[in-house]
Nucleic acid binder design. Structure first.
Lengths: 169, 169
DNA sequence: CGGAAAAGTTAGGTAAACCTAACTTAAAAG
DNA sequence: CTTTTAAGTTAGGTTTACCTAACTTTTCCG
């Protein structure tokens, strides 16, 4: 219920627990530790803190599950991760490893307002007839091109099945 | 010289010192503290740490300046901030306050590879005749529109001074 | 110049987020 | 059903990054 801000670290724990719940119904200390590259002892401490905040159900030596509020928070983080990775991977078209790692770091830094704008932007690119997949493909070529030339613009516009009346710039 | 990673906190100090140097030649403890919303005592501690890393010139009770390496690092951070803010403000078109605050948080999370892609993407949007300012304006309208309609697409394409041979989708 | 005010430092404290290593509990396997 | 092994916990330690409050140095001005 409380809308107090979670630390990056706590967000990572929730995200990991959500993923493990999805994969195996419950999350185990060992799996959380492995997923986050931490030691088991560190995880136990964090779980106590999350239990105090009523974000997880936690009894020593038993399985860990998210509370309703914990799941809500975890899903928020996972959603931010998903959107950011989608943008990095399919719009900016960075390599999958970089996209994943960068999304992991950026997911704690984006606010809701910016995220929804990004969601809309990604959608707009896919929906707008002036953009789309072909336009994104041209972006990659533009990036590759050291000279950053626009000499392909005419051909590209023809690809859009249009006639450009203006002078080529 | 060393390419070891700086903490978010240390990056913030360097960025603040750079900005203060630009504004008043030197950075004072008080100004750094004010800029980062910290207490003076905290700043002194951080400065010692930055001096040990040879990123600033620091003698007790004297002014603070960046070393060559410190300036290089500070400018990297400032550049990341600038690019991210530009993207948030001029592409996603979030309000200036959100753009500034979000750039401040994201600047520590983007890697060099992703950043250069983003730079290229921003440039591409401004250079590509299929995108540009008009296209960005349409994006804002698309965002405003709850129905996320594409009914404006024909008008938009005509704005591009083109004839769209295809069926309106 | 001399003392008040401003700026900077120091010392000691807290909290978060890790670690290791020893210990306890639970599960699996003979 | 015991014993081994795997999983989990605990205790104590470290580092980072802050804080407050007392103290020191510098600056400025009457």
């Amino acid at each position: 219920m409380a809308e107090n801000q979670l630390s990056e670290s706590m967000e990572n724990y929730l995200e990991a627990i959500l993923a493990l719940e999805k994969a195996s119904k419950v999350a185990r200390v060992k799996d959380i530790a492995e997923r986050l590259n931490l030691k088991k002892g560190s995880v136990t401490g964090a779980l106590k803190s999350l239990a105090e905040k009523e974000l997880i159900h936690y009894e020593p030596y038993s399985f860990i599950t998210l509370t309703t509020e914990g799941r809500r928070r975890a899903e928020q983080v996972a959603y931010r991760h998903h959107v950011l990775k989608d943008f990095l991977l399919n719009i900016l078209q960075v390599d999958p490893e970089t996209a994943e790692a960068t999304a992991c770091r950026m997911e704690h830094a984006v606010d809701a307002k910016t995220l929804e704008r990004l969601v809309c932007f990604i959608e707009y690119i896919h929906v707008c007839p002036r953009a789309g997949d072909q336009w994104l493909q041209s972006f990659v070529e533009y990036c590759r091109d050291d000279a950053r030339e626009t000499k392909n613009c005419r051909r590209c516009l023809e690809g859009l099945q249009i006639v450009d009346n203006r002078e080529k710039r």
